[in-house]
């Protein structure tokens, strides 16, 4: 017997316990799957694969398993596999950040302000899709962290738990991804980078 009665029921392959767990996690799991694959059908397939894998792995649950993290990791792994089987745009090398600055640390080129973000919902959605397309050029690990943090609003701690990275590493890579997306978006928006 563990301190968590739900864990005991799950290990006993109790269908109602599994249903309870999955229903509670449903939107979060779909969010992880969708943010990484950015494809509705892929996300649905990932969700199915996640449920199937979780049911099959119930015997691996330990007393200290955090259930939401455990299911999230299964979903993330399936989403990564799905992404690998689907051809994405070729990844582009990220800018060498050092090259943006003079030896004394001053920025080499100018940075302009951007035009006001559109009020119209359709225009905003279009702009967001442009950003999503640019994110496809990021290396997978950076793109994934950006998707989980900036489109799903997972906390740094949650992302660290899902990915197995240290929180500090999550922050460093997320910041790097945002800086790169900002540079690319500046070019797209016609502003000087």
């Amino acid at each position: 017997m563990s301190a968590n009665p739900l864990l005991d029921r799950l290990r006993a392959r109790d269908r109602s316990a599994f249903t309870e767990l999955c229903v509670a996690q449903r939107d979060r799991l779909y969010g992880i799957a969708w943010s990484v694959t950015r494809d509705r059908q892929d996300a649905l397939d990932v969700l199915q694969d996640t449920l199937t894998s979780a049911w099959r792995s119930l015997s691996t649950l330990r007393d200290d398993t955090a259930l939401h993290a455990w299911m999230g990791q299964i979903a993330l792994n399936h989403a990564r596999m799905r992404l690998r089987t689907r051809r994405r745009k070729p990844v582009e090398p990220m800018d060498d950040l050092d090259a943006l600055f003079e030896a004394d640390g001053h920025r080499r080129d100018d940075i302009s302000a951007w035009p006001e973000r559109p009020d119209d919902a359709l225009d905003r959605a279009r702009l967001a899709r442009r950003l999503a397309r640019l994110a496809d050029r990021l290396p997978d690990d950076h793109r994934e962290l950006w998707a989980l943090a900036d489109t799903q609003h997972l906390s740094m701690e949650e992302i660290a738990e899902l990915t197995g990275l240290q929180v500090a590493n999550v922050k460093t890579r997320l910041h790097r991804a945002r800086l790169q997306l900002r540079e690319w978006l500046a070019l797209e928006l016609g502003a000087r980078p």
């Binding site: 905003r124 999503a132 950006w146 900036d150 489109t151 609003h153 945002r178 997306l181 900002r182 978006l185």
Partner: peptide, 15 residues
């Protein structure tokens, strides 16, 4: 300001 914008545009994808 444009870093903030980049994050805000990403948040629109969550909608």
């Amino acid at each position: 300001s444009t870093y903030d914008e980049t994050v805000a545009i990403g948040a629109d994808l969550a909608n």
